[in-house]
Design a binder for these strands. Structure first.
Lengths: 256, 256
DNA sequence: AAGTGGTCTAGACCACCGG
DNA sequence: CGGTGGTCTAGACCACTTA
């Protein structure tokens, strides 16, 4: 957060000029904060500077900084805590986990969960994966497959693809040693913060491989969830293809 | 919007008292606006009074009204249009329709859609339906079933339950005569605005009835979507059980 | 008591829309 | 041109946390 290149707002500049694209000050502040987050100036879980300090730094009023932070907080990139400060969102919290895992038990019984890694491989990205992750075809990716169980019954089959460069040194051992959720691991081990995701959902019939791993017959209906997760600059950083068993679980969603 | 019962904010009142629940002024304004919307003071598509007028009416500053409206706009109850005014959200708009229908063609080809009403009945609410619609068991409900087709292939099977009282006089003829989406009809004919919904999604196997209507074999995987829609006071006003064919469509979702 | 975010005000000015 | 929402400021005061 060194150089601050706010658009000149004197009467002769863009604001009064008319034709140039008009960008409010608070949007420029927001962009600067985003840059700071992206380059890791403040790490997940840490506090960013106070509103007054940022206002002084950017030479604007507290209200303008406030509006920028408001938007970032609404997007769940920042977390405000009255009396304490404003903090960078992190996946190292129980409540945040259900923001991305929408599968919920039909009855509210909390379930014991377990993860079993099937394999972790590095390979050249298949064309479809490369396209979705915005990689050049032939670039290295990490492919990770696992089974998630609840109360000892296998429920989720995940086929996860990650760009190779940011995830150097990701091994099965490392994954098995970690007890935190995957996105928390990505955050603390690789500095990759997942901020937003898009999902496409279908109902499909289980193929032979899926049927065996989930202990159902071939043809059994499965919820197929394809997710692309993004970091700060809307840069795709994970492709995840999941197959969910939905006998005792459902995918919940809110429409606003 | 007649009586305005804002909490006294003098030094001796709740704000300084300490123990009473503290509610910011703008939240009280928001609640008043919500009341006005609920009682139909301003109809969907109409403009609400300007910020300055509301500020004068409620004896607060424009900024405070603004913050109340900001939240209602964020929840999609109101729509701000610079230079024109603030409008009550309505389902009579193409863009709003895809806020509740999350099924999207895999390739972006726009599809011609058609609706066929199977039947419309009035009956005493089954126990599960009554519970979800927060009705006393035995109260009358309207049950409506239909098939939605895209490009002439049946794709969505809807089983819709509505509380009988607000939807008096709903008939198959009326539905078939209308070319607007269901929620738009509810709005203009029955004064019921759907504002928010919760969905629970599973993958299931088609039963005999579903298989025939959707022209697939029994056992074919279907996306089963149970939706409860709410009006202004978070009052449930529709239970919808849908079965979606997802060969050429998918359910899209964004995780923030 | 000091420092943080949260509320509220009053006023100025800008961007956009319509007559 | 007047009216609308949108931005920005400066300042006061409140609520909450920590020490």
């Amino acid at each position: 957060m060194s150089d601050q290149t706010l658009t000149d707002r004197s009467p002769d500049s863009d604001r009064a000029g008319g034709s140039a694209a008009f960008s409010p000050l608070y949007q420029q502040i927001k962009a600067l904060l985003l840059q700071g987050l992206d380059r890791g100036e403040w790490k997940p879980g840490e506090a960013i500077p106070s509103e007054l300090e940022l206002a002084a730094r950017f030479q604007v009023s507290q209200g303008t900084v406030r509006k920028a932070i408001d938007e970032l907080a609404a997007e769940n990139l920042l977390l405000r805590r009255q009396g304490k400060g404003t903090f960078v969102a992190t996946h190292h919290e129980a409540k945040v986990r259900f923001r991305f895992l929408r599968l919920t038990p039909d009855d509210a019984t909390p379930a014991v969960s377990g993860s079993r890694i099937l394999d972790v491989r590095r390979l050249k990205a298949p064309a479809d994966v490369a396209a979705l992750l915005e990689l050049r075809s032939g670039e290295t990716v990490v492919n990770l497959r696992r089974v998630l169980s609840f109360d000892d019954s296998p429920t989720i089959l995940d086929d996860i693809w990650l760009p190779g460069a940011p995830f150097k040194g990701l091994t099965a051992e490392l994954l098995e040693a970690s007890r935190s959720p995957l996105y928390a691991l990505f955050e603390s081990e690789y500095g990759v913060s997942m901020v937003r995701a898009e999902e496409k959902i279908k109902a499909v019939a289980a193929d032979a491989a899926q049927a065996e791993l989930l202990a159902v017959e071939v043809g059994h209906p499965l919820l197929q969830v394809e997710r692309i997760s993004f970091t700060y600059g809307d840069r795709p950083m994970e492709l995840r293809r999941g197959a969910y068993l939905t006998e005792r679980f459902h995918y919940r969603n809110s429409l606003n």
